[in-house]
């Protein structure tokens, strides 16, 4: 099952979260858009960290991966909310 959510934030940045679910667990996650992340690999780390997680522990997965990553144009809270909404639908 594939779920996708696109959101535009007030500073104009566009973020898309795409999640592939299998048996209630995340099989694949992609976060795309015109935001900035320093270091850039941080986003890939979050995507990897999400694999195998479900609605209950997705937030924790993102929060544990986010340490040391600076996001511009995308707030951590918004990213967590988007992932949860994807899973919750």
């Amino acid at each position: 099952m594939e779920r996708e959510l696109v959101r535009k934030f007030k500073d104009g940045k566009l973020v898309k979260v795409k999640i592939v679910l299998e048996g209630g667990l995340i099989k694949d996650a992609k976060i795309t858009g015109d935001f900035f992340a320093h270091p850039e690999e941080g986003i890939e780390i979050i995507e990897k960290e999400l694999i195998g997680k479900d609605l209950c522990n997705a937030r924790q997965a993102i929060e544990s991966a986010i340490g040391g990553i600076t996001l511009i144009g995308l707030r951590l809270e918004d990213l967590v909310a988007m992932v949860q909404e994807c899973l919750d639908r």
Partner: peptide
Amino acid sequence: GYFQEIKE
């Protein structure tokens, strides 16, 4: 950009 989806 590094994070963008090309087809979009």
